[in-house]
Computed example of a mutant assay.
Amino acid sequence: MLSVITIPAFNDNYIWLFHQADSNKAYVVDPGCAKSVLSYLQGAETQGNKLDLVGILITHHHADHTGGIAELQKAYQNQLNVYGPSKENIDGLTELIDHQQSLLLPFITNPVNVIEVPGHTLGHIAYSIEDALFCGDTLFSGGCGRLFEGSPEQMSASLSKLSSLDKDTKVYCAHEYTQANLAFAMAVEPNNPQLQQYNQSVLDARMNNISTIPTTIATELAINPFLRSHCTEIKQSISQQFNVNNPTDIQTFTLLRQWKNNF
Score class of each variant (00 low, 15 high):
residue 244 V to I: 15
residue 171 V to K: 00
residue 90 I to S: 02
residue 28 V to D: 07
residue 249 D to W: 00
residue 167 K to C: 03
residue 64 D to M: 09
residue 242 F to I: 04
residue 161 K to R: 11
residue 125 I to W: 04
residue 230 H to T: 12
residue 37 V to W: 02
residue 136 G to V: 05
residue 231 C to A: 15
residue 216 T to A: 04
residue 113 N to Q: 15
residue 111 P to G: 08
residue 227 L to F: 09
residue 263 F to Q: 06
residue 163 S to K: 14
residue 117 V to D: 02
residue 211 S to G: 11
residue 136 G to N: 00
residue 174 A to C: 13
residue 18 F to K: 04
residue 48 G to V: 08
residue 92 G to H: 07
residue 44 A to I: 00
residue 250 I to S: 06
residue 30 D to K: 08
residue 45 E to V: 08
residue 210 I to K: 14
residue 161 K to M: 08
residue 209 N to K: 15
residue 63 A to M: 12
residue 44 A to T: 07
residue 177 Y to A: 09
residue 262 N to H: 11
residue 112 V to L: 06
residue 171 V to D: 03
residue 13 N to Q: 11
residue 219 T to A: 07
residue 240 Q to D: 13
residue 28 V to P: 10
residue 215 T to F: 04
residue 186 M to C: 08
residue 201 S to L: 12
residue 56 I to K: 01
residue 90 I to N: 03
residue 62 H to M: 07
residue 228 R to F: 06
residue 8 P to N: 08
residue 30 D to I: 04
residue 263 F to A: 10
residue 247 P to K: 00
residue 70 A to W: 02
residue 176 E to M: 10
residue 13 N to F: 13
residue 186 M to N: 09
residue 114 V to F: 01
residue 86 S to G: 13
residue 66 T to W: 01
residue 248 T to A: 01
residue 22 D to L: 10
residue 180 A to E: 11
residue 96 L to Q: 12
residue 98 D to T: 13
residue 27 Y to C: 03
residue 140 F to R: 00
residue 108 I to F: 09
residue 13 N to W: 10
residue 240 Q to A: 14
residue 43 G to C: 04
residue 128 S to Y: 11
residue 222 A to K: 14
residue 97 I to L: 11
residue 209 N to Q: 15
residue 124 H to T: 14
residue 6 T to S: 15
residue 18 F to M: 00
residue 180 A to K: 10
residue 101 Q to L: 12
residue 155 M to R: 08
residue 108 I to G: 09
residue 253 F to H: 01
residue 130 E to L: 02
residue 187 A to K: 15
residue 89 N to D: 14
residue 74 K to P: 02
residue 142 G to P: 06
residue 231 C to P: 00
residue 135 C to W: 01
residue 115 I to R: 05
residue 6 T to Y: 15
residue 64 D to T: 13
residue 94 T to W: 04
residue 259 W to M: 03
residue 146 R to L: 12
residue 243 N to T: 05
residue 142 G to M: 06
residue 252 T to S: 03
residue 258 Q to S: 06
residue 73 Q to N: 12
residue 33 C to S: 14
residue 242 F to Q: 01
residue 195 L to A: 02
residue 193 P to M: 03
residue 198 Y to H: 13
residue 117 V to F: 03
residue 160 S to H: 14
residue 11 N to M: 13
residue 78 N to V: 04
residue 211 S to R: 02
residue 233 E to I: 05
residue 76 Y to E: 01
residue 252 T to P: 07
